[in-house]
Write a protein that binds this DNA or RNA. Structure first.
Length: 673
DNA sequence: CTTTTTCCCATTTTT
DNA sequence: TGGGAAAAAG
């Protein structure tokens, strides 16, 4: 039929060709799910004659959506892919809100509060409340996010509150939403929730979007939360133009609201659903897949699935018992050095996976000691950097004068001699009049409560921001932004604050990079006319701004958490800390959440292409004292014939105990000397 | 404003 | 136990 199908296996072909009615593709790890999605898009456009602008593909991360865009671009020739929507859930939500802000009764320019902004706002609300100490901040932020993900509005939260404490949080929730509205802002969860509300309440708007999106494809479906699923249902309606791809065995984000049961709910909500399983794996050896299958079989399953591959049997999985965590890290470092030579592999062929970030510390020390190059993924992201947040706050305030958070961040950065007392006066004034702090700065009545000098400084700032806003809306927005950064002498401020001149230079480079990104977004006007507002909103979702991290990937060993490894693959994988209380994590054991931990282990195993090595430490320092550990229960769930144990022989309890006590004796002898 | 001191916590995290 | 962050002190 077409070139798009030639390289696919029968199951994959079936998934691509199935376009009448909703389709669930259960795609095991490494089974080519992205190929299926991208080729299905190509097939819809080129063979079914569906205009690209009526097709939308949704992913969870910017990275995934970027990759998908690229691959579709390589598949679909010429301009046929124009108008295709490939975006994250949040970006799709943002587009809907942006286009429908009138129907929503919102201003065209709104701010997006990231997690940090949201917490700052919550903190303020709770302080005002008085009797809630900010210890609960995490708890409250989490609860509110959970409510939003579960489509619970403040009134419902209040009426369903089971305890006075919960009622109190519900009240904060109400005021938090109210404050967001006053600031003309939405938080990340609102980006999904608001479109859902809009579509539920205004059928004619929904109808409009249904006419636009006629075919929807969703990646990593097991990671959707309730509101995301409802958004999907609303858009698709009963026309069945839906393909979702997911793997229930790789659901590892339940703790942040993901509902893996959405997979099985599909069957109920779309009775005509077709189920297609992709079980052929193109990544790993049979041995690795056998181990993975064997482990995950210990979880209850609604859908049975067994991965297989034609990559050959491969080497057994190695399980290495180490004396303590120090020896474990040392061993991994030595393994990497020797394996690299033996197999003529690159450093970048190795990945070390662990449960918690703190485990990276020791590994880092050992890798450094042996001069092994490495990168740790999951440090402070580009966006969390102070300099980026500062400049972004200037942009946000220019775009949306109601954004008090942005105002507070920059009013005295760099120093403008506007201190706490002045700010308090502004805050009071703004509160009484129900206007934002920035707008209060422009009012005449403000002069009452403060010295002339402070007022003058405030007036200057206010005027300057307005001027900058005008400049940005002129014909050279990027030039205006450069001017802004120079006006405030941000570079000087950075130098003044940095511990070393180098640090300041590096930070300034980040700022220029940010401006370059804005330039790039504005120039890429193949979207409709993009305003500075749109560009800033997109940036808040970290879109367009992450490739920098990927650039400096040299030949380095990769260190990351098991969570962060999902979707990636490496020839040689180490899983460290295979111990009770660590890999089934203690809190998960207490909460009886073993199944998700098992899936996490499964994800780790299936990252490996050729070899997999698991290590565990018999003793581990924990909170200062040395704890006797026991190896992870998951090791007992691996097929014996595919596993070779090392260190003290087996990880089997019997052997272990016998050899362990023998070893203990000799260890004691050694210590005595 | 910077340095010191104290205190608290110790799973996973994208947008 | 040890590291990081907030509070306090200089």
């Amino acid at each position: 039929m077409s070139a798009h199908l030639a390289k696919l296996n029968p199951r994959q072909k079936e998934a691509v060709l199935h376009i009448d009615g909703p389709c669930l593709v259960l795609a095991g790890a490494g089974s080519g799910k992205t190929s299926v999605i991208t080729r299905k898009i190509a097939y819809l456009i080129e063979e079914c004659g569906m205009p690209a602008r009526h097709i939308a593909a949704v992913t969870f991360t910017n990275k995934a959506s970027r990759e998908m865009k690229e691959r579709v671009g390589g598949l679909v020739k010429g301009s046929a892919a124009r108008g295709l929507t490939v975006s994250t859930f949040h970006n799709l939500g943002l587009n809907i809100i942006r286009r429908e802000h009138k129907a929503l009764g919102m201003k065209a320019s709104f701010s997006i509060f990231d997690a940090e902004d949201a917490r700052a706002l919550l903190k303020e609300l709770m302080l005002k409340d008085g009797d809630l100490d900010s210890d609960h901040l995490d708890l409250v932020a989490n609860q509110i996010s959970n409510w939003k993900n579960d489509l619970v509005i403040p009134a419902m939260a209040a009426s369903k509150a089971a305890s006075p404490g919960e009622a109190q949080i519900a009240e904060i929730y109400r005021r938090y939403n109210q404050a967001l509205r006053a600031y003309n802002a939405v938080d990340f969860d609102d980006l999904i929730l608001t479109p859902v509300r809009l579509f539920s309440e205004q059928p004619e708007v929904l109808e409009k979007w249904r006419r636009k999106i006629r075919y929807l494809l969703v990646d990593e479906y097991q990671d959707t939360n309730s509101s995301q699923y409802l958004l999907v249902k609303l858009i698709v309606g009963d026309r069945g133009g839906l393909t979702v791809v997911g793997d229930d065995d790789q659901s590892i984000y339940a703790w942040r609201g993901a509902r893996p049961e959405n997979l099985s709910l599909l069957k109920k909500d779309f009775p005509s659903l077709s189920l297609i399983k992709l079980e052929q794996n193109y990544r790993s050896t049979s041995r690795i897949l056998r181990v993975a299958n064997h482990l995950i079989a210990h979880n209850p399953h609604e859908f049975d699935k067994a991965l297989w591959s034609e990559m050959g049997l491969g080497e057994p999985i190695r399980v290495i018992r180490c004396a303590n965590e120090d020896a474990e890290s040392e061993r991994v470092a030595m393994e990497i050095l020797s394996q690299r030579l033996k197999r003529q592999a690159k450093f970048s062929d190795f990945a070390i996976l662990y449960r918690g970030n703190h485990q990276a510390r020791l590994l880092e020390i050992k890798l450094q000691a042996h001069q092994i190059p490495y990168t740790i993924s999951g440090g402070t992201s580009f966006f969390a950097r102070a300099e980026i947040k500062d400049v972004m706050s200037y942009l946000r305030l220019i775009v949306n004068p109601d954004d008090d958070n942005a105002f507070l961040r920059i009013i005295n950065t760099p120093r403008r001699q506007i201190g706490p007392s002045t700010l308090e006066a502004i805050g009071h004034y703004a509160n009484e009049r129900h206007i934002s702090m920035f707008n209060a700065c422009g009012e005449i009545g403000l002069g009452e409560h403060m010295p002339e000098a402070s007022l003058e400084r405030i007036r200057r700032f206010h005027h300057w921001v307005l001027q900058m806003g005008e400049n940005c809306r002129g014909d050279d927005p990027v030039g205006a932004l450069k001017q802004l950064v120079e006006d405030i002498d941000y570079e000087g401020w950075l130098h003044q604050n940095a511990s070393a001149p180098k640090v300041a230079e590096r930070r300034m480079e980040n700022v220029w990079y940010l401006l370059d990104s804005i330039k790039a977004i504005l120039q890429k006007a193949d979207d409709d006319e993009l305003t500075v507002e749109d560009a800033i909103a997109k940036l808040m979702l970290r879109d367009m701004l992450e490739r920098q991290e990927e650039e400096d990937l040299g030949d380095q060993v990769q260190l990351m958490t098991l969570h962060a490894s999902k979707g990636l693959e490496y020839p040689h994988v180490f899983m460290v800390g295979m111990e009770e209380d660590l890999l089934p994590h203690r809190t998960s054991i207490e909460e009886d959440n073993i199944e998700e931990e098992r899936r996490l282990t499964y994800v780790g195993i299936t990252r490996a292409q050729k070899t997999l090595t698991m290590t565990w430490a018999a003793k581990r320092k924990q909170y200062g004292e040395i704890i006797e550990t026991s190896y992870s229960r998951f090791l007992d769930e691996l097929p014996e014939e595919d596993v070779v144990s090392e260190g003290l022989g087996q990880h089997n309890p019997e052997v272990n105990r016998a050899q362990g006590s023998a070893m203990l004796g000799s260890l004691l002898d050694m210590l005595k000397k």
